[in-house]
């Protein structure tokens, strides 16, 4: 199965780069016995979920200004239903990690992430959040947020243009549409990777059993 039937209202499938990643994801799900034919209820829920993602206002530096531009009149991410920025992590679905994360900030970001309710997503916005970027040589920079929390979408640039951010948002919307809401995968955490893998295998077994029944 290819992923052409995953519909995003404002953009065609072939306009997206790297469709292989999603196809791989589907193949992996199928290999593990997961039913990838999405049911109607999932369609409906995911349609709603992907079009009303509430971001947490979390900006540490320069990229935050571009995030503000995205919220303002010209780029206006309200068009895609993302405009309800939440100041409390408990009400947010996605954290846009705009800017450099340093050692002192790392535990704060980790706590914010842990306070968010599942399902939750992370977007690494800008080269600092991806890999440390221009501050790679610094003694106090965390070389990418994926060292602390798992990341769903990476948006490169220093800072990325708001257009690039919209593209990244659509990628996340696509990922949300692919997920089964009633059987969401648990997010891996670098610290308990081992535990997670064990739990993941367990779930797979259950899924297989469920499939057999």
């Amino acid at each position: 199965m290819d992923v052409k039937d995953i519909r995003i209202k404002n953009m065609k499938t072939e306009d997206f780069k790297e469709n292989e990643y999603l196809e791989e994801y589907v193949r992996e799900l199928r290999a593990n016995g997961v039913n990838v034919v999405v049911s109607k209820l999932d369609d409906l829920i995911n349609w709603g979920r992907s079009n009303s993602v509430w971001p947490l206002t979390f900006a540490t530096s320069c990229c935050g200004i571009e995030f503000m531009c995205l919220g303002a009149a010209r780029y206006d991410f309200a068009r895609f239903g993302w405009e309800v920025t939440r100041n409390s992590p408990r009400q947010a679905d996605v954290v846009f990690c705009c800017g450099t994360i340093v050692h002192k900030m790392a535990p704060v970001l980790k706590r914010l992430y842990e306070q968010m309710a599942e399902p939750k997503y992370v977007m690494a916005f800008g080269s600092c959040a991806i890999s440390g970027g221009p501050f790679k040589k610094s003694y106090h920079t965390v070389m990418g947020v994926d060292q602390i929390i798992p990341v769903d979408v990476y948006i490169p640039g220093c800072p990325p243009r708001p257009d690039a951010m919209i593209y990244g948002m659509m990628q996340l919307a696509r990922k949300i549409k692919l997920q089964e809401f009633f059987r969401l995968p648990k997010q891996p955490h670098p610290e308990n990777q081992k535990e997670f893998t064990a739990a993941f295998n367990d779930t797979n077994e259950n899924v297989e059993k469920g499939g057999n029944q």
Binding site: S61, G99, T100, V102, K104, P134, K137, H140
Partner: peptide, 26 residues
């Protein structure tokens, strides 16, 4: 302070002059 301390001054000491120009921008 310090939640966004990126060590720019120390980094400047390891950069040649044309290389460090992008740091004050940020």
């Amino acid at each position: 302070f310090g939640y966004i301390h990126r060590g720019i001054e120390k980094m400047c000491e390891t950069y040649a002059y044309p290389q460090m120009l992008h740091l004050p921008d940020r």
